[in-house]
Structure formats: structure tokens, C-alpha cells
């Protein structure tokens, strides 16, 4: 069976390689991809939208429908993970673990034992806990805020540098996942619950959709941000620029929330009890 798989892979790899020679050369000006719409985008982006980064303008403005449905696809990926994996807590665990916040000591309480109240002193943690590691905890305390700041920078500067909603959302989600790794899943879900991550995910898509609908209400086409120019201080060109920014923020929120949501479900195998 293994050999059969190897043969199939070699055949398909060879096919892909042979097809590579038929592709147009890199930077070929007469290839089909760079003769129809690309020159239009490259020449008109700056005067249409005042966005120097052509990729951002194409993604969020010229091909707005495409990106809208991409965001919806990401949200439905989170939804699919939820429906496939999520199972309610089946049985009460044999023992519960609580961490004393001041000293980092861990209490193990057998079934039937008296449980300390959820207070500022004790925090319930995963039962497959990892001993409190000073080095990793301190590093994450130092690094997480800067990773979050970098993520916001990537979202906000999609106009000028590589980046935008998707990339920034991934980095922000990674920052929250880093917090979950360095502490544990239970203390993360207490700060950002599953319900609010799902709501934020759909909220991001709604921001995108709402911007498009607002454009219709203001008399322009769906996702034609130049309709936003009725607001004071905006001309059609800068309105398109701001419209792209709003859309990117919506995408960023959606991607962050969905990343965290998928992590919750995957890391705990659906129980949301014990994480990585």
C-alpha cells in the first residue's frame, strides 16, 4: 500500500513538473494574467482609492465580494469545527485542581471533597496541568502585549505595508493562543468565553456586510465605498480608503475570534475542559 502511494505521488509530481514548463515565464508581460485586468489595477489604484498597496486595494475594494465570502468561509470553518468536535462535559472528573494564585501551589481535591470558592485566591485549572513554569509565564507576560500591538499595527497599516485583516487577525489570535499555552485553557476561557468568541466572529462578518449595505443605503452599489463620501470631510477617493480600513478591521475581528474558537475546540478535543 505504501509503495502504491509512492508510485502515485511520483506520477503526479512528474505531471506537475512537466506542466510547469508550459507556464508563462516570471514577469512575462504578454502572459494572459498580466494583459487583461492587472494593468488597469496597477495604473488606477492610486488615483481611485489613494492606497499605495495594490494588493490591499484589489482584495478589499475591486474584489470586495470575493473577500466577503472568504471571511464567511473562515467563519463557517469555525462553525464546522464547533459542530463536529464540541461535546458537553460527560462526567464529573475524579479530581479537581486549583491553583493558589499568590504562591503557584496546586491543590488536588478528590471527588466529594470540599471545593474552595472561585475567588481571587484560587483559580480552577486543567486536571492535566503542567507545573507552573516561571520562565515561560514571565516570557509570555512580557511578549503578549507586544504581539497584540504588532497585530493591530498589521491591521491598521494594510494600506502601506504587506498585511491587512487576515494577517493581523492571525497574529492577534496567536497572541491569545500564546496566553492559553502559557497559562491554561480554563483561565483563558474565563477571560474570553467561547460564546463571546463566536459572537465576535459573526460580528466581524456583520461589520463587513454592514459596510456594504450602508453603501447601498447611501445610494451607491453594494461595497462601493465611494458612497460613504456623504459624511463630512470625505471625498469619493478618501472614502474608498476609509471603507477599506473599516472592512479590514471587520475581517481582523472575525479571523481573531475564529482562530481562538477553533483552538478552544481542537486543543481540548471538544470538551473545553483541558487544553494544550
Amino acid at each position: 500500500m505504501k509503495r502504491l502511494g509512492l508510485i502515485a505521488i511520483i506520477i503526479f509530481g512528474g505531471l506537475l513538473f512537466s506542466i510547469t514548463f508550459e507556464l508563462p515565464d516570471l514577469g512575462d508581460a504578454s502572459s494572459p494574467a498580466s494583459t487583461h485586468v492587472s494593468p488597469y489595477y496597477i495604473e488606477h489604484t492610486l488615483e481611485d482609492t489613494s492606497v499605495p498597496n495594490v494588493v490591499t486595494a484589489i482584495l478589499a475594494d475591486y474584489r470586495g465580494y470575493d473577500t466577503l465570502f472568504e471571511t464567511a468561509v473562515i467563519f463557517s470553518a469555525g462553525l464546522a469545527c464547533f459542530f463536529l468536535l464540541r461535546i458537553p462535559e460527560r462526567k464529573a472528573p475524579k479530581a479537581r485542581f486549583y491553583r493558589h494564585l499568590t504562591t503557584g501551589l496546586t491543590l488536588r481535591i478528590e471527588k466529594g471533597g470540599r471545593i474552595p470558592e472561585e475567588s481571587k485566591e484560587f483559580e480552577r485549572i486543567d486536571s492535566a496541568w503542567v507545573p507552573n513554569d516561571v520562565i515561560i509565564n514571565m516570557t509570555c507576560r512580557l511578549v503578549v502585549p507586544f504581539v497584540q500591538l504588532f497585530a493591530l499595527y498589521v491591521i491598521a497599516h494594510g494600506h502601506h505595508s504587506p498585511g491587512g485583516g487576515f494577517q493581523g487577525g492571525v497574529i492577534f489570535g496567536a497572541a491569545i493562543i500564546l496566553f492559553a499555552i502559557s497559562n491554561n485553557l480554563r483561565s483563558t476561557t474565563r477571560r474570553l468565553s467561547e460564546k463571546s468568541s463566536a459572537l465576535l466572529g459573526s460580528g466581524g462578518v456583520i461589520i463587513y456586510l454592514g459596510t456594504g449595505l450602508l453603501c447601498i443605503l447611501l445610494g451607491a452599489g453594494f461595497l462601493n465605498y465611494s458612497g460613504l463620501s456623504v459624511f463630512p470631510g470625505l471625498d469619493p477617493v478618501s472614502a474608498r480608503s476609509y471603507g477599506i480600513l473599516i472592512v479590514e478591521i471587520g475581517v481582523g475581528i472575525a479571523v481573531t475570534a475564529v482562530m481562538v474558537w477553533i483552538y478552544y475546540n481542537l486543543a481540548s478535543a471538544g470538551t473545553q475542559e483541558e487544553g494544550l
Binding site: 513554569d133 520562565i135 515561560i136 516570557t139 512580557l142 511578549v143 507586544f146
Partner: peptide
Amino acid sequence: VFVFITSPTATHAILD
């Protein structure tokens, strides 16, 4: 600066 903070931590995590 980022690498100087994180690299020893990553080494320590793998060792752990």
C-alpha cells in the same frame, strides 16, 4: 530584542 527574550525560552521549553 524579541529574539533575545524568546530564544532562551524556546530552548528551555524544548528541554523541559
